[in-house]
Design a binder for these strands. Sequence first.
DNA 1: GGCTACATACCAACCAGTAGGTATGGCGTC
DNA 2: GACGCCATACCTACTGGTTGGTATGTAGCC
Lengths: 220, 220
Amino acid sequence: MTTRAAEPPHPTRLRLLEAALTVIRTKGYAAARVEDVCAEAGLTKGSFFHHFRSKEELAIAAAAHWSEMTGRLFAGAPYHGHEDPLDRVLGYVDFRRSLLEGALPEFTCLVGTMVQEVYATDPAIDRACADSIEGHAATLEADIDAARAAYGVHGAWTTRGLALHTQAVLQGAFILAKAEGGPAIAAESVDHLHRYISLLFGRDPARARPPSPATEKESR
Amino acid sequence: MTTRAAEPPHPTRLRLLEAALTVIRTKGYAAARVEDVCAEAGLTKGSFFHHFRSKEELAIAAAAHWSEMTGRLFAGAPYHGHEDPLDRVLGYVDFRRSLLEGALPEFTCLVGTMVQEVYATDPAIDRACADSIEGHAATLEADIDAARAAYGVHGAWTTRGLALHTQAVLQGAFILAKAEGGPAIAAESVDHLHRYISLLFGRDPARARPPSPATEKESR
DNA sequence: GGCTACATACCAACCAGTAGGTATGGCGTC
DNA sequence: GACGCCATACCTACTGGTTGGTATGTAGCC
């Protein structure tokens, strides 16, 4: 991930990045025109090319911005407050489930969408997307490891593999949501993921979930 | 799915459809130029537009062709020969896993790739993709139902939901494979799916898999 | 007065789709 | 069994709209 201490970006650049998120998540990267992004941001191309050298640079910057945004969102999420590490892992899944609301471009994943289009044609964007996904998955590994230790679970799978599996389920859920036109089936798939992790650690999946601890004001 | 008794397509049309599979799975739909498809098929645009009215019609026809191709592949797969319905479901997962070989455009899913790009902009292609995914998932439901009956499993989930969850895991695995540049992590995710279904039906996931029954010569 | 941050106007390449041509082969007719 | 006729299948050449990117202008600010 390498979230290097980024100086806060120029507000106009930020507006363009936010616009890019919306447009690319709606139409995909190739179909997203620079002018679409400008219109969404209420600017013109002259301004765009003042802040970005090319459309490709926008995509890479958007992926980095996405990583930072989601990084902050998940770092501040309440599930980190659980005592039991397994509750933290399951809390993460519940949190992801709670995000599946509203219109599709609001909850689907920027980098998952982009990587499908560019993996074979644009190595730089592909790398940025892969970094984003892997970096996010890595934030789960400490809790999964702690849960394995606490529950004495040592199956034929790796911590990193399970962390990435959660991402696979979520990415796949987004695809189903796009095909079906809404988040309902995506939510069911995330429920299956929750049930899987419960079973994997020998916990009854039907057991009531622990209440979310109060959201931390500042998680540093 | 509605696999209506299709008269065998014109061989040149078929070459264009096969070429479209390759090109779209490599570059995505929007970036796939009509001329790319023609070049891949060894034809020119004049011929293309003799067989298809538009690029959109190609995409829809490609999705239908994809459904037929995969339909035949899975209908003829060996896992249907297992006595135990749970073995058939798990055999399906194993079969999917065995397909994760070679270069990415050879094993990734056409309609999963396309739906991400068109869900908000092209309802006709979106519908074709959704039909393909749902139609394929539906082929699992009879075996899942039979397994639920045989094993007395009635959790808080639906047969259709689990069938679609298998597709979510696979689609997500393809995204990870594209990000990582190879099928290794995708395979791990499919292993997790196998483990999940085993646990869900109360079977020890570590248990040796039953040998595949001999491939049926003709499954009608 | 020069630098940042935007806008307007323009260009050249690209690309889906069209126009119109030619080769091929089936088929009825004599 | 040769001939005229036409539909099919494929090609080359072109067009017109689109789009990433550039050149240039200008308003405000230090």
